[in-house]
Amino acid sequence: MNSRVADRIATGVLIGLATIIVVLLVGLFSYILAKGIPNISWSFLTSPSSTVQAGGGIRDQLFNSFYILFITMLITVPLGVLGGIYMAEYAQPGKITHFIRSCIEMLASLPSIVVGMFGLLIFVNTIGWGYTIIGGALALTIFNIPVMVRVSEDAVRSVPSEQKEASLALGITHWHTIKTVLIPAAFPGILTGAILASGRVFGEAAALLFTAGLSTPKLNYMNWNPFSETSPLNIFRPAETLSVHIWEINTQGIIPDVEEVANGASAVLVLSVLLFNLLARWLGSTIHKKITASK
């Protein structure tokens, strides 16, 4: 077989595979939306879920998903970015750095159910919080940190070394250089990492089953006191997220409209992830333009 034929075959195979991926994605997406959107209504989004009767909504689960995402990112992003900076700028090549890197990679490949069991052991039982938002957020942090560290490290490393030299040669300290040159230049990469991590948080169920729980107390959305039992902002309350809710009603739900609720919730979940990504990207590029003064 000559190389021209091989080239044509390779091109054909690659195009074929790419087509399969796109078709799968579009197929899945339109299936979920087609099945789910008819079930979405204003009352579906704004009423609490019901345990026995038909007609329950997903208000609390939707809020919980976003709130857990917010708390998780509040912990994950600073830790992950600082870890990435350490790995890129301070860690000397050698055995210890190699060991840290192996640990991070191992952490990244932990099955989420194991992270969930770990959370159950530590946050729920040992510390004795019970099922809480903060416990869930910390469990999610554990398995999002490696991604965040890795992505931040790569982003910081990919800043041209000329820019770092330029800053150091002006008599700017290492830390100031990191803060004012490296991080702004690495910002788009770090943002992409944060968006990827958010997607995982949104979709995660296994790690939350045993940490944030399967229930939500009766919430009063007018109560903004984060220490109050009925406040949605209280981080020491149990919180069932959308993903967990979908799993729960499908496995043990006794409401008659399980399928409708599950389909609707799935569509809302997919749309939320999509909307969140678009929003984060738009916000990121706005900030990036502002720092770099580019049009």
């Binding site: 041209p160 000329e162 820019q163 030299e165 330029a166 800053s167 040669a169 040159v181 702004p184 230049a185 720092i291 770099t292 003064a293 580019s294």
Partner: peptide, 11 residues
């Protein structure tokens, strides 16, 4: 330096 290396910021 050899090559102009301005920061990706405004002038």
């Amino acid at each position: 330096f050899q090559k102009g290396n301005p920061f990706p910021q405004s002038i």
